[in-house]
Simulated scan of single mutants.
Amino acid sequence: MENTENDQNDHEKETKNDTPAEANGVEEEEEDELSKEIMARHFRPSIIKTEAWEGYMFAGLEIRIKESTDLYGAMLWPSAMVLCHFLDTHREAHNLEDKNIIELGAGTGLVTIVTSLLGAKVTSTDLPEILGNLQYNVNRNTRGRCRHPPLVTELSWGKDLEKRFPRASCHFDYIMAADVVYAHPFLNELMETFEHLCQDNTVILWAMRFRLDPENSFVGRFQKLFHLEELYNLPGLKIKLYSATRRCPRSQHLDTT
Score class of each variant (00 low, 15 high):
Glu129Asp: 11
Asn137His: 06
Pro150Lys: 08
Leu151Trp: 01
Tyr174Lys: 11
Arg145Phe: 04
Ser156Gly: 12
Ala177Phe: 01
Asp173Ala: 08
Asn139Ser: 14
Arg140Glu: 13
Leu155Glu: 06
Gly132Ile: 09
Ser116His: 03
Ala168Glu: 12
Glu162Trp: 01
Thr142Arg: 06
Val138Pro: 03
Leu127His: 02
Ser124Trp: 01
Ile130Lys: 03
Gly144Tyr: 00
Arg147Glu: 08
Pro150Phe: 08
His171Leu: 11
Glu162Ser: 05
Glu154Ser: 06
Trp157Pro: 05
Lys159Met: 15
Asn141Trp: 01
Ala168Lys: 15
Asn137Gln: 12
Gly119Asp: 10
Val122Ile: 12
Phe172Pro: 00
Lys159Trp: 00
Asn133Ser: 13
Leu134Trp: 02
Glu162Asn: 10
Gln135Val: 06
Ala120Trp: 02
Leu118Gly: 08
Glu129Pro: 03
Asn137Thr: 09
Asp160His: 09
Gly158Ile: 10
Trp157Ala: 10
Thr123Ser: 14
His148Ile: 07
Lys121Phe: 03
Glu162Leu: 14
Cys170Val: 11
Phe165Met: 12
Arg164Ser: 14
Thr125Arg: 06
Thr115Phe: 02
Ile130Cys: 07
Pro166Asp: 13
Ala120Lys: 09
Arg140Met: 13
Ser169Trp: 00
Thr153Arg: 13
Tyr174Phe: 09
Asn141Ile: 12
Asp173Asn: 12
Arg145Met: 14
Cys170Tyr: 07
Val111Thr: 11
Ile130Phe: 02
Gly132Met: 13
Leu131Ser: 09
Ala120Gln: 03
Gly144Phe: 00
His148Cys: 15
Leu134Gly: 09
Ser169Asn: 08
Arg145Asn: 12
Pro128Met: 13
Pro166Ile: 14
Leu118Ile: 09
Val111Met: 10
Thr123Lys: 08
Arg140Phe: 01
Ser116Ile: 03
Arg140Gln: 10
Val114His: 02
Ala168Gly: 04
Phe165Trp: 07
Phe165Pro: 01
Ile175Glu: 04
Cys146Tyr: 07
Arg147Trp: 00
Gly132Asp: 15
Val111Gly: 01
Leu118Ser: 06
Arg140Cys: 12
Val111Pro: 01
Met176His: 07
Arg140Thr: 12
Ile113Ser: 15
Met176Arg: 07
Leu117Phe: 00
